[in-house]
Simulated assay, not measured.
Amino acid sequence: MTRPTHPLIIPSALATVLDSVTLLDTRWELGVPTRRPAYDAGHLPGAAWVEFEGVLADAPGAGGRHPMPQRDVFAAAMRAAGVDNDRPVVVYDDGNSLAASRCWWLLKYFGKEDVQVLDGGFAAWAAAGLPVSTDEVPPADGDFYPTDPGAALLDADGAADFAVTKLLLDARPADRFAGRNETVDPIPGHIPEAVSSPSLANVTESGAFLPPDDLAMRFTALGIRTDSEVGVYCGSGVQATHLALALEASGIRPRTSIYIGSWSHWITDPERPVEV
């Protein structure tokens, strides 16, 4: 398989290269301890299970609800899932790509470029009538080794600076950005001067991403160009990576930096300003 040129791959295209990629199942749901039973009930043939909590995020605490995972823990889990330095990876989840985008971004952050997300996830694969397996996939022995970060990471001060001097996007739903219907974090509102750009508005009802031209229109309306510098945050660094994936899939591909601690980290310091 040649090196992918787009961050998304559709089920029919994946089916033709299934034997030449490493598949990662990252199904996850907020508030649910594990989605492993869903994987056991059926997954893409050969796909390895990757647990979100503890692998794609460290334990909640001062760094937020889903802080960066420990580098060595993440790398070991990727190797156990069969990730090699020279073999392409395709990541999927249930369908909306929230968890898959987090894994996609982390792999790219740690230097692996040949990684894609299955557009529409497991739901799209099953809807296309493609094969599903219940076979257990034993731990592998991949040779993935994380390199220096290949993506930019923001802290709270960096996010505040982006909001004033560049562009800081808030990927949460618009009502949470506005400080309404906040059911996850104890303090409602957003980082001052941030701009609302809900990540899930970039996918259809089925979970598949909008066409690149439609995504590009949404982002150019916000003033984003290829040479733009964009910061992204959300509640805990999941929808933020989803928005980063949409920015990449749009073809604009600005330089995108993630505030991984996001709102759940921002509000840990009572001196940081809050806007509603």
Rank of each mutant, 00 (worst) to 15 (best):
M1S: 13
R3I: 04
R3C: 04
T5N: 07
I10T: 13
A13E: 14
A13V: 06
A13Y: 05
A15C: 05
T16D: 11
L18F: 04
S20N: 12
V21F: 09
V21T: 08
V21W: 03
L24I: 14
D25C: 12
R27C: 10
L30G: 05
T34G: 05
A38D: 15
A38H: 10
D40Y: 00
A41E: 14
L44C: 04
G46R: 04
W49P: 04
F52N: 00
L56Y: 05
A62Q: 13
G63A: 11
P69E: 05
Q70L: 13
R71E: 14
D72Q: 15
A77I: 12
M78S: 08
R79Q: 15
R79G: 06
A81C: 05
D84C: 14
N85D: 14
D86F: 08
Y92P: 01
Y92I: 07
D93F: 03
N96C: 09
A99Y: 02
A99C: 14
A100P: 08
A100Y: 05
L107G: 02
L107P: 04
Y109C: 10
G111W: 04
V115P: 02
V115D: 00
L118Q: 08
G121A: 11
A123K: 13
A124H: 06
A127P: 03
L130S: 10
V132D: 03
P139W: 09
F144K: 06
Y145Q: 12
T147D: 09
D148H: 12
G150Q: 03
L153C: 10
L153S: 14
L154V: 11
D157A: 15
D161Q: 12
D161M: 10
L169A: 09
P173W: 01
P173N: 12
G189I: 07
G189T: 08
I191S: 02
P192E: 06
P192N: 07
E193A: 15
V195S: 02
S196W: 02
S196L: 03
P198S: 08
S206Q: 12
G207A: 07
G207W: 00
F209Y: 15
L210Q: 12
D213F: 06
D213E: 15
D214K: 14
A216V: 07
M217W: 06
T220C: 01
E229D: 15
G235T: 01
G235V: 01
A240F: 06
A240R: 01
L243C: 10
L245W: 03
L247F: 05
A249E: 04
S250N: 08
R253V: 13
S257C: 10
W263P: 00
S264F: 04
W266C: 02
T268Q: 12
P270H: 09
P273G: 06
V274S: 02
E275S: 15
V276E: 09
